[in-house]
Design a protein around this nucleic acid. Structure first.
Lengths: 216, 216
DNA sequence: CTGGATCCGGGAAGATACTG
DNA sequence: CAGTATCTTCCCGGATCCAG
Protein backbone atom coordinates (compact mmCIF):
# COMPACT_ATOMS: atom_id res chain seq x y z
CA UNK A 1 0.00 0.00 0.00
CA UNK A 2 1.03 3.52 -0.70
CA UNK A 3 1.99 5.28 2.50
CA UNK A 4 -0.22 8.08 3.73
CA UNK A 5 2.94 10.01 4.55
CA UNK A 6 1.53 11.24 7.84
CA UNK A 7 3.36 11.27 11.16
CA UNK A 8 0.33 9.83 12.92
CA UNK A 9 0.00 6.59 14.82
CA UNK A 10 -3.18 5.51 13.08
CA UNK A 11 -1.98 6.46 9.60
CA UNK A 12 1.19 4.45 10.13
CA UNK A 13 -0.86 1.50 11.33
CA UNK A 14 -2.97 1.70 8.18
CA UNK A 15 0.20 1.87 6.08
CA UNK A 16 0.81 -1.70 7.27
CA UNK A 17 -2.66 -3.22 7.62
CA UNK A 18 -4.90 -0.92 5.58
CA UNK A 19 -4.52 -2.91 2.39
CA UNK A 20 -7.44 -4.87 1.08
CA UNK A 21 -7.61 -8.42 2.53
CA UNK A 22 -4.83 -7.89 5.08
CA UNK A 23 -7.05 -7.71 8.17
CA UNK A 24 -9.17 -10.60 6.93
CA UNK A 25 -6.01 -12.70 6.73
CA UNK A 26 -5.34 -11.76 10.34
CA UNK A 27 -8.91 -12.81 11.21
CA UNK A 28 -8.24 -16.23 9.67
CA UNK A 29 -5.00 -16.76 11.54
CA UNK A 30 -6.48 -15.54 14.81
CA UNK A 31 -9.50 -17.82 14.66
CA UNK A 32 -7.91 -20.81 12.93
CA UNK A 33 -4.37 -20.81 14.26
CA UNK A 34 -1.44 -21.46 11.91
CA UNK A 35 -2.66 -22.20 8.37
CA UNK A 36 -1.39 -23.43 5.07
CA UNK A 37 -1.75 -21.36 1.92
CA UNK A 38 -4.68 -23.45 0.79
CA UNK A 39 -6.37 -23.20 4.19
CA UNK A 40 -6.27 -19.45 3.86
CA UNK A 41 -7.78 -19.63 0.39
CA UNK A 42 -10.66 -21.69 1.74
CA UNK A 43 -11.22 -19.20 4.56
CA UNK A 44 -11.05 -16.21 2.24
CA UNK A 45 -13.44 -16.98 -0.63
CA UNK A 46 -13.07 -14.39 -3.34
CA UNK A 47 -9.35 -13.70 -2.96
CA UNK A 48 -7.16 -14.28 -5.98
CA UNK A 49 -4.17 -16.52 -5.35
CA UNK A 50 -1.68 -13.91 -6.54
CA UNK A 51 -3.19 -11.36 -4.16
CA UNK A 52 -2.92 -13.77 -1.25
CA UNK A 53 0.71 -14.43 -2.12
CA UNK A 54 1.36 -10.67 -2.37
CA UNK A 55 -0.26 -9.96 0.98
CA UNK A 56 1.59 -12.76 2.73
CA UNK A 57 4.88 -11.42 1.37
CA UNK A 58 4.09 -7.92 2.62
CA UNK A 59 2.93 -9.18 5.98
CA UNK A 60 6.08 -11.22 6.37
CA UNK A 61 8.20 -8.15 5.61
CA UNK A 62 6.19 -6.21 8.18
CA UNK A 63 6.84 -9.02 10.68
CA UNK A 64 3.15 -9.74 11.20
CA UNK A 65 3.47 -13.40 10.18
CA UNK A 66 6.16 -16.06 9.98
CA UNK A 67 6.41 -19.22 7.89
CA UNK A 68 7.90 -22.47 9.05
CA UNK A 69 8.15 -25.78 7.28
CA UNK A 70 6.48 -28.78 8.81
CA UNK A 71 8.64 -31.91 8.75
CA UNK A 72 7.47 -34.92 6.70
CA UNK A 73 5.08 -36.61 6.32
CA UNK A 74 3.14 -33.31 6.38
CA UNK A 75 5.69 -31.36 4.36
CA UNK A 76 3.69 -28.17 4.20
CA UNK A 77 4.48 -24.56 5.02
CA UNK A 78 2.60 -23.27 8.02
CA UNK A 79 1.80 -19.57 8.26
CA UNK A 80 1.31 -18.15 11.71
CA UNK A 81 1.02 -14.78 13.42
CA UNK A 82 3.92 -13.20 15.24
CA UNK A 83 3.35 -11.47 18.59
CA UNK A 84 2.93 -8.22 16.76
CA UNK A 85 0.39 -9.84 14.47
CA UNK A 86 -1.52 -11.28 17.38
CA UNK A 87 -1.62 -7.78 18.88
CA UNK A 88 -4.00 -6.88 16.05
CA UNK A 89 -6.66 -8.80 17.96
CA UNK A 90 -7.91 -5.56 19.47
CA UNK A 91 -8.41 -3.98 16.05
CA UNK A 92 -10.08 -7.11 14.70
CA UNK A 93 -12.30 -7.29 17.77
CA UNK A 94 -13.46 -3.70 17.48
CA UNK A 95 -14.23 -4.04 13.78
CA UNK A 96 -16.16 -7.21 14.48
CA UNK A 97 -18.15 -5.54 17.21
CA UNK A 98 -18.88 -2.47 15.10
CA UNK A 99 -20.02 -4.65 12.23
CA UNK A 100 -22.35 -6.79 14.35
CA UNK A 101 -25.48 -4.69 13.59
CA UNK A 102 -24.81 -5.26 9.88
CA UNK A 103 -25.33 -8.99 10.33
CA UNK A 104 -29.10 -8.63 10.67
CA UNK A 105 -29.30 -8.08 6.92
CA UNK A 106 -29.76 -11.45 5.22
CA UNK A 107 -26.74 -13.06 3.54
CA UNK A 108 -28.19 -12.91 0.00
CA UNK A 109 -25.42 -14.57 -1.98
CA UNK A 110 -22.61 -13.89 0.49
CA UNK A 111 -20.16 -16.68 1.15
CA UNK A 112 -20.13 -18.16 4.62
CA UNK A 113 -17.73 -20.10 6.81
CA UNK A 114 -18.79 -21.27 10.23
CA UNK A 115 -15.45 -20.39 11.81
CA UNK A 116 -16.11 -16.71 11.04
CA UNK A 117 -18.46 -16.83 14.02
CA UNK A 118 -15.61 -17.62 16.41
CA UNK A 119 -14.94 -14.00 17.35
CA UNK A 120 -18.58 -12.91 17.79
CA UNK A 121 -19.48 -16.07 19.71
CA UNK A 122 -17.01 -15.24 22.43
CA UNK A 123 -19.27 -12.34 23.43
CA UNK A 124 -22.65 -13.72 22.39
CA UNK A 125 -22.52 -16.92 24.41
CA UNK A 126 -23.76 -16.74 27.98
CA UNK A 127 -20.76 -17.15 30.24
CA UNK A 128 -22.83 -18.24 33.22
CA UNK A 129 -21.73 -18.36 36.83
CA UNK A 130 -18.60 -20.16 38.11
CA UNK A 131 -20.82 -22.74 39.80
CA UNK A 132 -22.35 -24.13 36.60
CA UNK A 133 -20.79 -27.28 35.11
CA UNK A 134 -18.44 -26.81 32.15
CA UNK A 135 -19.76 -27.50 28.65
CA UNK A 136 -18.07 -27.80 25.27
CA UNK A 137 -20.07 -27.20 22.10
CA UNK A 138 -18.84 -27.50 18.52
CA UNK A 139 -20.31 -25.14 15.93
CA UNK A 140 -19.94 -26.64 12.46
CA UNK A 141 -17.43 -29.44 12.04
CA UNK A 142 -13.72 -30.25 12.18
CA UNK A 143 -13.07 -28.76 8.76
CA UNK A 144 -14.96 -25.53 9.27
CA UNK A 145 -16.10 -24.65 12.71
CA UNK A 146 -15.11 -23.65 16.21
CA UNK A 147 -15.32 -25.10 19.69
CA UNK A 148 -16.95 -23.05 22.43
CA UNK A 149 -15.91 -23.94 25.95
CA UNK A 150 -17.91 -22.46 28.82
CA UNK A 151 -16.15 -23.05 32.10
CA UNK A 152 -15.94 -21.29 35.42
CA UNK A 153 -17.93 -18.28 34.22
CA UNK A 154 -15.70 -17.77 31.20
CA UNK A 155 -16.17 -18.35 27.47
CA UNK A 156 -13.29 -19.68 25.42
CA UNK A 157 -13.52 -20.16 21.66
CA UNK A 158 -10.91 -22.30 19.92
CA UNK A 159 -10.32 -23.90 16.54
CA UNK A 160 -11.99 -27.31 16.36
CA UNK A 161 -9.79 -30.16 17.51
CA UNK A 162 -10.24 -33.87 16.88
CA UNK A 163 -8.81 -34.53 20.35
CA UNK A 164 -11.50 -32.53 22.10
CA UNK A 165 -14.57 -34.28 23.48
CA UNK A 166 -17.67 -32.19 22.79
CA UNK A 167 -21.02 -32.31 24.55
CA UNK A 168 -22.92 -31.16 21.49
CA UNK A 169 -22.42 -30.32 17.83
CA UNK A 170 -24.52 -27.61 16.25
CA UNK A 171 -25.26 -26.82 12.63
CA UNK A 172 -27.58 -24.11 11.35
CA UNK A 173 -28.02 -21.62 8.55
CA UNK A 174 -25.92 -18.59 9.51
CA UNK A 175 -28.75 -16.07 9.77
CA UNK A 176 -30.61 -18.43 12.09
CA UNK A 177 -27.59 -18.56 14.37
CA UNK A 178 -27.38 -14.76 14.38
CA UNK A 179 -31.06 -14.38 15.19
CA UNK A 180 -30.86 -16.94 17.99
CA UNK A 181 -27.76 -15.53 19.69
CA UNK A 182 -28.97 -11.95 19.45
CA UNK A 183 -32.22 -13.08 21.08
CA UNK A 184 -34.33 -12.16 18.07
CA UNK A 185 -35.64 -15.68 17.85
CA UNK A 186 -36.58 -18.53 20.17
CA UNK A 187 -34.81 -21.88 20.15
CA UNK A 188 -37.96 -23.59 18.90
CA UNK A 189 -38.25 -21.19 15.98
CA UNK A 190 -34.57 -21.65 15.18
CA UNK A 191 -35.04 -25.41 15.04
CA UNK A 192 -37.94 -24.91 12.65
CA UNK A 193 -35.56 -22.90 10.47
CA UNK A 194 -32.90 -25.54 10.23
CA UNK A 195 -30.90 -25.48 13.46
CA UNK A 196 -29.87 -28.97 14.53
CA UNK A 197 -28.18 -30.03 17.75
CA UNK A 198 -26.40 -33.36 17.86
CA UNK A 199 -25.63 -34.55 21.38
CA UNK A 200 -26.66 -32.77 24.57
CA UNK A 201 -29.33 -30.19 23.86
CA UNK A 202 -28.93 -28.96 27.44
CA UNK A 203 -25.25 -28.18 26.84
CA UNK A 204 -26.17 -26.05 23.84
CA UNK A 205 -29.02 -24.26 25.63
CA UNK A 206 -26.56 -23.46 28.40
CA UNK A 207 -24.84 -21.06 25.93
CA UNK A 208 -27.93 -19.17 24.82
CA UNK A 209 -28.32 -15.59 25.99
CA UNK A 210 -30.52 -15.33 29.06
CA UNK A 211 -34.21 -14.57 28.61
CA UNK A 212 -34.03 -11.21 30.30
CA UNK A 213 -31.96 -9.79 27.47
CA UNK A 214 -34.46 -10.23 24.64
CA UNK A 215 -35.51 -7.10 22.84
CA UNK A 216 -39.15 -8.14 22.92
CA UNK B 1 -15.30 -0.31 -2.27
CA UNK B 2 -16.11 -3.65 -3.71
CA UNK B 3 -17.86 -5.84 -1.18
CA UNK B 4 -16.00 -8.86 0.14
CA UNK B 5 -19.22 -10.82 -0.23
CA UNK B 6 -18.74 -12.59 3.08
CA UNK B 7 -21.41 -13.10 5.73
CA UNK B 8 -19.01 -12.01 8.45
CA UNK B 9 -19.27 -9.11 10.85
CA UNK B 10 -15.76 -7.84 10.24
CA UNK B 11 -15.94 -8.21 6.46
CA UNK B 12 -19.19 -6.25 6.40
CA UNK B 13 -17.61 -3.56 8.57
CA UNK B 14 -14.71 -3.32 6.13
CA UNK B 15 -17.18 -3.10 3.24
CA UNK B 16 -18.17 0.25 4.76
CA UNK B 17 -14.97 1.64 6.29
CA UNK B 18 -12.20 -0.36 4.62
CA UNK B 19 -11.76 2.10 1.79
CA UNK B 20 -8.63 4.16 1.64
CA UNK B 21 -8.94 7.44 3.61
CA UNK B 22 -12.29 6.60 5.20
CA UNK B 23 -11.01 5.88 8.70
CA UNK B 24 -8.68 8.88 8.56
CA UNK B 25 -11.70 11.08 7.83
CA UNK B 26 -13.33 9.59 10.92
CA UNK B 27 -10.16 10.41 12.89
CA UNK B 28 -10.45 14.03 11.79
CA UNK B 29 -14.09 14.34 12.76
CA UNK B 30 -13.54 12.59 16.08
CA UNK B 31 -10.65 14.81 17.13
CA UNK B 32 -11.77 18.07 15.53
CA UNK B 33 -15.52 17.91 15.82
CA UNK B 34 -17.71 19.00 12.90
CA UNK B 35 -15.59 20.27 10.02
CA UNK B 36 -15.93 22.06 6.74
CA UNK B 37 -14.68 20.50 3.52
CA UNK B 38 -11.57 22.67 3.58
CA UNK B 39 -10.89 21.83 7.24
CA UNK B 40 -10.82 18.16 6.28
CA UNK B 41 -8.42 18.88 3.43
CA UNK B 42 -6.06 20.61 5.82
CA UNK B 43 -6.24 17.70 8.25
CA UNK B 44 -5.71 15.12 5.51
CA UNK B 45 -2.65 16.28 3.58
CA UNK B 46 -2.19 14.15 0.50
CA UNK B 47 -5.85 13.50 -0.27
CA UNK B 48 -7.13 14.60 -3.66
CA UNK B 49 -10.21 16.81 -3.53
CA UNK B 50 -12.23 14.48 -5.76
CA UNK B 51 -11.41 11.53 -3.51
CA UNK B 52 -12.49 13.45 -0.43
CA UNK B 53 -15.76 14.35 -2.15
CA UNK B 54 -16.24 10.69 -3.15
CA UNK B 55 -15.59 9.41 0.35
CA UNK B 56 -17.91 11.94 1.96
CA UNK B 57 -20.66 10.93 -0.45
CA UNK B 58 -20.19 7.26 0.40
CA UNK B 59 -20.01 7.92 4.12
CA UNK B 60 -23.20 9.95 3.96
CA UNK B 61 -24.95 7.08 2.16
CA UNK B 62 -23.68 4.71 4.84
CA UNK B 63 -25.06 7.12 7.49
CA UNK B 64 -21.67 7.65 9.09
CA UNK B 65 -21.77 11.43 8.63
CA UNK B 66 -24.36 14.15 8.14
CA UNK B 67 -24.09 17.60 6.60
CA UNK B 68 -25.92 20.65 7.80
CA UNK B 69 -25.78 24.22 6.59
CA UNK B 70 -24.69 26.89 8.99
CA UNK B 71 -26.85 30.02 8.84
CA UNK B 72 -25.24 33.34 7.75
CA UNK B 73 -22.90 35.03 8.35
CA UNK B 74 -20.96 31.73 8.37
CA UNK B 75 -22.77 30.17 5.42
CA UNK B 76 -20.73 27.01 5.32
CA UNK B 77 -21.62 23.33 5.28
CA UNK B 78 -20.58 21.50 8.42
CA UNK B 79 -19.79 17.80 8.25
CA UNK B 80 -20.22 15.82 11.43
CA UNK B 81 -20.34 12.23 12.60
CA UNK B 82 -23.60 10.44 13.27
CA UNK B 83 -23.92 8.21 16.32
CA UNK B 84 -22.96 5.26 14.19
CA UNK B 85 -19.92 7.18 12.96
CA UNK B 86 -18.90 8.09 16.49
CA UNK B 87 -19.15 4.40 17.39
CA UNK B 88 -16.07 3.91 15.23
CA UNK B 89 -14.08 5.46 18.06
CA UNK B 90 -13.21 1.99 19.33
CA UNK B 91 -11.77 0.95 15.98
CA UNK B 92 -9.85 4.21 15.64
CA UNK B 93 -8.56 3.86 19.18
CA UNK B 94 -7.29 0.32 18.67
CA UNK B 95 -5.56 1.22 15.42
CA UNK B 96 -3.96 4.21 17.11
CA UNK B 97 -2.75 2.09 19.98
CA UNK B 98 -1.41 -0.63 17.71
CA UNK B 99 0.43 1.95 15.64
CA UNK B 100 2.04 3.67 18.63
CA UNK B 101 5.30 1.66 18.43
CA UNK B 102 5.66 2.81 14.82
CA UNK B 103 5.96 6.42 15.97
CA UNK B 104 9.50 5.93 17.27
CA UNK B 105 10.74 5.95 13.67
CA UNK B 106 11.58 9.53 12.72
CA UNK B 107 9.10 11.45 10.57
CA UNK B 108 11.47 11.84 7.56
CA UNK B 109 9.31 13.84 5.17
CA UNK B 110 5.95 12.85 6.64
CA UNK B 111 3.35 15.55 7.04
CA UNK B 112 2.34 16.48 10.55
CA UNK B 113 -0.62 18.09 12.29
CA UNK B 114 -0.57 18.70 16.01
CA UNK B 115 -4.20 17.64 16.45
CA UNK B 116 -3.26 14.11 15.34
CA UNK B 117 -1.84 13.72 18.82
CA UNK B 118 -5.24 14.20 20.42
CA UNK B 119 -6.06 10.48 20.59
CA UNK B 120 -2.66 9.26 21.82
CA UNK B 121 -2.39 12.06 24.38
CA UNK B 122 -5.48 10.85 26.18
CA UNK B 123 -3.51 7.79 27.28
CA UNK B 124 -0.02 9.25 27.43
CA UNK B 125 -0.75 12.12 29.81
CA UNK B 126 -0.52 11.34 33.51
CA UNK B 127 -4.04 11.48 34.90
CA UNK B 128 -2.89 12.06 38.46
CA UNK B 129 -4.92 11.64 41.61
CA UNK B 130 -8.30 13.28 42.26
CA UNK B 131 -6.67 15.49 44.85
CA UNK B 132 -4.38 17.35 42.45
CA UNK B 133 -5.55 20.73 41.11
CA UNK B 134 -7.00 20.78 37.58
CA UNK B 135 -4.79 21.97 34.72
CA UNK B 136 -5.50 22.81 31.10
CA UNK B 137 -2.71 22.68 28.55
CA UNK B 138 -2.93 23.54 24.86
CA UNK B 139 -0.77 21.58 22.44
CA UNK B 140 -0.21 23.62 19.27
CA UNK B 141 -2.58 26.50 18.63
CA UNK B 142 -6.21 27.34 17.88
CA UNK B 143 -5.86 26.44 14.21
CA UNK B 144 -4.09 23.12 14.70
CA UNK B 145 -3.90 21.69 18.15
CA UNK B 146 -5.79 20.20 21.04
CA UNK B 147 -6.58 21.08 24.64
CA UNK B 148 -5.71 18.60 27.36
CA UNK B 149 -7.69 18.93 30.56
CA UNK B 150 -6.51 16.99 33.60
CA UNK B 151 -9.11 17.12 36.34
CA UNK B 152 -10.16 14.85 39.17
CA UNK B 153 -7.87 12.02 38.09
CA UNK B 154 -9.20 12.04 34.53
CA UNK B 155 -7.72 13.18 31.21
CA UNK B 156 -9.96 14.88 28.69
CA UNK B 157 -8.73 15.93 25.24
CA UNK B 158 -10.81 18.36 23.21
CA UNK B 159 -10.52 20.47 20.09
CA UNK B 160 -8.92 23.84 20.91
CA UNK B 161 -11.44 26.52 21.85
CA UNK B 162 -10.90 30.28 21.95
CA UNK B 163 -13.23 30.43 24.95
CA UNK B 164 -11.07 28.12 27.03
CA UNK B 165 -8.53 29.57 29.45
CA UNK B 166 -5.34 27.55 29.31
CA UNK B 167 -2.59 27.32 31.92
CA UNK B 168 0.12 26.64 29.35
CA UNK B 169 0.66 26.38 25.62
CA UNK B 170 3.17 23.89 24.27
CA UNK B 171 4.89 23.67 20.92
CA UNK B 172 7.52 21.14 19.90
CA UNK B 173 8.75 19.07 16.98
CA UNK B 174 6.54 16.00 16.86
CA UNK B 175 9.25 13.41 17.47
CA UNK B 176 10.36 15.34 20.56
CA UNK B 177 6.82 15.17 21.90
CA UNK B 178 6.69 11.42 21.26
CA UNK B 179 10.02 10.84 23.00
CA UNK B 180 9.00 12.94 25.99
CA UNK B 181 5.59 11.36 26.55
CA UNK B 182 6.89 7.84 26.10
CA UNK B 183 9.57 8.61 28.70
CA UNK B 184 12.42 8.13 26.26
CA UNK B 185 13.68 11.64 26.95
CA UNK B 186 13.90 14.07 29.86
CA UNK B 187 12.13 17.41 29.89
CA UNK B 188 15.47 19.22 29.83
CA UNK B 189 16.59 17.30 26.75
CA UNK B 190 13.25 17.95 25.06
CA UNK B 191 13.66 21.67 25.65
CA UNK B 192 17.11 21.50 24.07
CA UNK B 193 15.47 19.89 21.04
CA UNK B 194 12.91 22.60 20.50
CA UNK B 195 10.11 22.08 23.01
CA UNK B 196 8.75 25.39 24.30
CA UNK B 197 6.20 25.98 27.06
CA UNK B 198 4.38 29.30 27.20
CA UNK B 199 2.68 29.92 30.52
CA UNK B 200 2.83 27.67 33.55
CA UNK B 201 5.66 25.16 33.19
CA UNK B 202 4.33 23.40 36.29
CA UNK B 203 0.96 22.81 34.60
CA UNK B 204 2.71 21.13 31.68
CA UNK B 205 5.00 19.04 33.88
CA UNK B 206 1.91 17.88 35.70
CA UNK B 207 0.96 15.91 32.53
CA UNK B 208 4.29 14.15 32.02
CA UNK B 209 4.43 10.42 32.69
CA UNK B 210 5.72 9.65 36.16
CA UNK B 211 9.42 8.89 36.63
CA UNK B 212 8.82 5.30 37.65
CA UNK B 213 7.65 4.40 34.16
CA UNK B 214 10.82 5.21 32.25
CA UNK B 215 12.42 2.37 30.33
CA UNK B 216 15.88 3.20 31.72
C1' DC C 1 -2.11 -31.87 -4.67
C1' DT C 2 0.31 -27.37 -2.76
C1' DG C 3 2.06 -22.85 -3.53
C1' DG C 4 2.55 -20.07 -6.15
C1' DA C 5 3.85 -16.93 -10.99
C1' DT C 6 2.20 -14.48 -15.22
C1' DC C 7 -0.72 -11.97 -18.07
C1' DC C 8 -4.42 -8.92 -18.89
C1' DG C 9 -8.76 -5.93 -18.41
C1' DG C 10 -11.31 -2.82 -15.50
C1' DG C 11 -11.71 0.25 -11.97
C1' DA C 12 -10.15 2.77 -8.04
C1' DA C 13 -6.78 6.10 -6.55
C1' DG C 14 -3.94 10.14 -7.50
C1' DA C 15 -2.68 14.69 -9.73
C1' DT C 16 -4.09 18.80 -11.68
C1' DA C 17 -7.04 22.20 -13.65
C1' DC C 18 -11.11 24.53 -13.51
C1' DT C 19 -15.85 26.46 -11.90
C1' DG C 20 -20.44 28.21 -9.60
C1' DC D 1 -15.59 27.48 -0.23
C1' DA D 2 -16.86 23.24 -2.06
C1' DG D 3 -16.58 20.84 -5.02
C1' DT D 4 -16.43 18.84 -10.62
C1' DA D 5 -13.82 17.31 -14.84
C1' DT D 6 -10.21 15.08 -16.92
C1' DC D 7 -6.26 12.41 -17.39
C1' DT D 8 -2.84 9.17 -15.74
C1' DT D 9 -1.24 5.55 -12.88
C1' DC D 10 -1.48 1.57 -10.51
C1' DC D 11 -3.85 -1.81 -7.70
C1' DC D 12 -7.23 -5.39 -7.77
C1' DG D 13 -9.60 -9.33 -9.70
C1' DG D 14 -9.98 -13.26 -12.77
C1' DA D 15 -8.06 -16.68 -15.55
C1' DT D 16 -4.51 -19.48 -16.75
C1' DC D 17 -0.29 -21.86 -16.34
C1' DC D 18 3.60 -24.06 -13.87
C1' DA D 19 7.25 -26.16 -10.68
C1' DG D 20 8.03 -29.21 -6.73
Amino acid sequence: MRSYGQFCSMARALDLVGDRWTLLIVRELLTQGPCRFSDLRRGLPGIASNLLADRLREMEEAALITRHEEPPPVAATLIGLTGRGRDLGGVVGELTRWGAPLMTNPPHDDAFRMHWFALPLRHLCRAGSPGEPAVTVRFGDLYDGCDVIADNGRIDVRPPSARRRVDATVTAPPQVLVALFTAQTSLAAAQDQGLAVDGSAAAFERLLPSEGHTDA
